[in-house]
Design a protein around this nucleic acid. Structure first.
Lengths: 200, 200, 200, 200
DNA sequence: CATGAATGAGCTTTCATTCAT
DNA sequence: AATGAATGAAAGCTCATTCAT
């Protein structure tokens, strides 16, 4: 019975557990998380988590996939409404920054998993999220390459500039101080990126 | 006991333990670390760690301070040899990137602690590394402000640009794939930053 | 519900579960067995086992009864074809040893249950298989007593000699090494037993 | 520091834990044993068992070794006081049977481990106790071979007869009924074995 | 008759920490 | 200053069993 469909109720439970995991990650972090804490948050027994997921790592891996998909879909939705490469690039940046604000908890959970989780071979996830496999990176590079083809953008090194842009986006996630004005940052970043990529 | 000097032997032990912690973080990560593992690496008993540090969190906090100071001193040393603001800014970027290569293990340990450790109030360290307190941020902003005073740099928003630069540096740390050419990245980043800050 | 006849389908299920239990015992042993493992082997749900048997202990107890009956029937079938007490005794020994070879899996399962299972009063099964209740023992002693009545056998202590014979049979079950020649052992055992029981 | 000596206190603890394991095996059997139960019996914490033994299997394996040595030493002590092969053989049988009576708890524990324990490759111990490696078997066969060399014994197959003798001894361990007279059994067994091995 | 969902107890193991020596 | 012994709590996981469907 390979490929058998999980029942509706099972799928609902899995999502409930994943959402409880996200909240718990926000509250106590990856290091202190446990199946017991997740179960308590979800108001179910620990055994039920083990029933729906192979083990703890499986819960967190599925949570990661869930979070990455949410984030990607959000950004893709905004970007796909734009036509020109430039507009798409700006939309990418704005959507990325906006996601942090509107999905704060998801964002924290994402950071917690990426910087704490490890594969079975003990390789940290953050060492895996390189520019060749991470869908968000691939997407950003597609936008940029498209802009170079349409001659909207100048002829810089696509990968390196995408790393700089992603870095500037990611770094702002860590600015949680009250003084940090993300709107102003967004404007400045758009201005700077424009300066970098536009033909002169 | 207040103000009492730690003996030489105590100081040596503390450093030995901190160095063992750094190596262990590189090998198994923050999530899997334990005093027993650190003790084994340092070839001492677990009790001795508890004797020299208040608790596990104290060990990791002191390791963090040790690592931050090492990194800061390395970068400051390179920067201080330059005169103009521009040269100092480039030296800052180059030294930051160089540190990753020459002190790989320290760098991994630093990432592990910053993204996994939390204060007693349960606040993640990564939320604390904002642009107002982190000495490296303060230092970078000093360089930039100095450049604006000497009219080498144009009149952009200091904090926001420093966040972009730090982001571009930090993001490259995560690029561990074989294809990533850090030398080329350094050149591209210097070129781009030059474009951003220089008066036109 | 008392005295109600189990339906054909229920009887078939019970046998299916018992057979799955036997196979599982051979593969992972009594210590590691669980209803989940049995259910997997039988390709049914765990709940179904609980439906057809009172509890886990009930499954294993019924498996034991099933195995004992199979073994007894096999031996009885061979013995009953012989006339004289001596021929019947030899047939008993030969059938006992033959059963090990032809029903290896059943034999392992039998050993696993007898030496691991306990009654509700916490008494190990192996302490119960004494010479007064175990049907195989009773049967063997009947054969011997018949031989003494017909004056084929000499006048030794029936119970003690039956224990020796059963011991010699049982011990050979544990000889799983490649070098052990069960045919030769059978011949030697028959020869020795003949020496012991025959009138001189 | 390979081969470092365990301290006296550690050795004492290990023996205390092993003795508690033996008692617990007698009371609840291998299937129901747990580190928690052993710890309770020994009046220590479960963690302490893990401190002195690698894992549960290690505790039981060491208990097995302890029990086998006790039994072997007991029998060897009795046998070594005799001169002729015949006297030694009888001493072997009598000591084996006597051990059951005087060390009842040890004997039960031994049975529990041998018939329930498994190696890491999932092979039951009872399948390993063949006549070539088990020291008791080797010892018995030495006695018999010696008797054949001195012409005390006739020229039967050593291994097969040793299996029969061991079986007759082992089987009697399972006779726990009140009616079983082990003294009478001992006399009968000695008589029968004498009949088997003596030159006529 | 049969299933999958669910619980709660129990398991082994590891851990941070304390303490006598 | 340093160790090894010891505790008790918490971890992840598996289990037998129950129950609604």
């Amino acid at each position: 019975m390979v490929g058998e469909q999980p029942s509706f109720i099972a799928e609902a439970r899995r999502e409930q557990i994943i959402k409880a995991t996200i909240e718990t990650l926000d509250e106590i972090g990856y290091v202190n998380i446990s199946l017991a804490k997740i179960a308590k948050k979800a108001k179910i027994s620990t055994g039920l988590i083990s029933y729906h997921f192979k083990d703890k790592e499986d819960v967190l891996h599925n949570t990661l996939i869930y979070l990455l998909k949410k984030q990607f879909d959000y950004i893709q939705d905004k970007v796909s409404k734009k036509e020109t490469a430039y507009d798409r690039l700006i939309a990418f940046i704005e959507a990325s920054l906006a996601y942090q604000l509107t999905h704060r908890v998801n964002n924290i959970a994402l950071i917690e998993i990426i910087f704490n989780g490890r594969t079975e071979d003990n390789i940290p996830y953050y060492k895996l999220s390189d520019d060749e496999e991470d869908p968000l990176y691939v997407y950003l590079q597609e936008i940029i390459r498209y802009g170079q083809e349409t001659k909207e953008f100048s002829d810089f090194h696509v990968k390196n500039v995408s790393i700089m842009i992603q870095g500037a986006i990611a770094e702002s996630m860590l600015m949680t101080g009250e003084k940090f004005d993300i709107e102003a940052y967004k404007n400045d970043l758009v201005y700077m990126v424009t300066k970098l990529v536009r033909k002169t």
